[in-house]
Design a protein around this nucleic acid. Structure first.
Lengths: 242, 242
DNA sequence: GTTGACTTTTTTGTATACAATTATAGTATG
DNA sequence: CATACTATAATTGTATACAAAAAAGTCAAC
């Protein structure tokens, strides 16, 4: 179908030292973050290979990396699908993210330099522009990248890599459970957060961050069983009436 | 060299649903945890393939998984080596672990059942037995598995997977920076921790856990530049006297 | 029309062959 | 003797072929 023209050998000039599976990984990762790939979508190795113009070997590497981050589920002998977190899993992911974001926020308050704060503000302006022009997908991606940028400023590589996984999982959750067209992660809150960081007000920054995550969690409680495709849950009443 | 006899197709009976690269992964992971593989060791794909009796494809998958967990470093075109965390990286890893262990400890205080507490106690007894009989390697591995078991009881898969990575990285750090023969992670502290959990005393449990991690960090400060192999740091004074 | 066994097709898992890259050894030269 | 260069070997990166498993399709029996 839609062929991504030439990410072959010669292309490595521009991509620096990125290897081929990095590129494939990034493309799929972005597609998930932008919600062009919805939860549950089957990721066929051969099709992907044709789309990206590489062999299954490369696709396989990219998929197993995504699988390690739990953004896709690798079912032995049955292929990979975009993850479909259940409600319980979603709550666990948000909880883990609270833990990481709290630590990241505190570190950022200590470490952040003026230049980095300006970069953050620019990111949020870009995000705002996306939502204003109706490009929800790119907006969601930039919103996720904002949180990744925070983790980067925190200067703790292990936390950053964990954050990467959690941010993409949250994007999946939003895709799955957010019913209304309401902005999921409003940029106003991002601006407020930056101000608190600039003032080195840890307590306020952390509180804003937690409040920010509350929004995601509220949606989970609201929609509850409605959005889930778990048949077992939907028909959990059947056995009783037998 | 030492051939691990037959982890071929037929062996899958006993291993349940584990696939071949899982087995290879687990073997290398354990070897690192038990410090039979020291930091910096080159992991040749073909040699490993011969040792485990599988093709490079399988070895490659196992290595990239270890690479994702940052337990081995994958240098493009130059192969994989067991990670050698620098002092700074070591401190970052311990910091990340503080963050995760704190959350895990609190969750465990809420979730732990009697049966699980007994399992934990049994693990620490096994660990004690290993150290008593002088099997330091297995002791260190069991000590790591104790902390993984805690993360499992916490019932939060994302935190567990992060903990897995951090525990093995810490094992590497201990291997690299622990000079004395002193027990690095004394089982007494593990017993105390279990008691605090059984009493559902969150504050005390968390405090014990933090104290536990202090021990690792203290070693880092003590040994400081002595244990590091970073030539640049060792000869950082040269340029001035030129 | 539905169910269940059998066959065919598709898809994934693994090994292997070849290409590209890096490491090593040897040789010549100053 | 040290250094730079070249040729060779070893090692990793990628594609492909084949084996194993799962999915889809076929057809008969009820």
């Amino acid at each position: 179908m839609s062929q991504i023209s030439e990410l072959k050998k010669n292309d490595t000039k521009r991509d620096g030292k990125k290897t081929q599976d990095d590129i494939v990984y990034a493309h799929i990762f972005d597609a998930i973050l932008e919600q062009r790939l919805s939860p549950g979508t089957k990721l066929n190795e051969e099709s992907l290979g044709e789309i990206f113009g590489v062999s299954r070997t490369i696709i396989r590497r990219a998929l197993s990396r995504l699988g390690y981050e739990q953004v896709v589920v690798l079912r032995p002998n049955r292929g990979a699908v975009v993850a479909c977190p259940t409600l319980e899993e979603a709550r666990q992911i948000v909880f883990a993210r609270r833990v990481v974001e709290k630590a990241v926020t505190e570190l950022v308050c200590d470490h952040a330099q003026k230049k980095q704060l300006e970069q953050l503000r620019q990111m949020v302006r870009d995000e705002q522009a996306c939502f204003d022009r109706g490009d929800r997908g790119a907006g969601i991606r930039l919103s996720g990248e904002f949180h990744l940028m925070l983790a980067e400023i925190a200067s703790n590589p292990p936390l950053l890599s964990f954050q990467r996984s959690l941010v993409s999982l949250c994007s999946l959750i939003i895709a799955q459970y957010e019913s209304g067209a309401k902005s999921h992660c409003s940029y106003d809150e991002h601006f407020e957060l930056i101000d608190a960081i600039a003032a080195k007000d840890k307590a306020r920054a952390v509180s804003l961050m937690m409040h920010h995550l509350d929004h995601i969690e509220e949606k989970l409680s609201l929609d509850d069983e409605i959005a889930t495709d778990d048949l077992r849950a939907i028909f959990s009443n059947v056995r009783n009436s037998k």
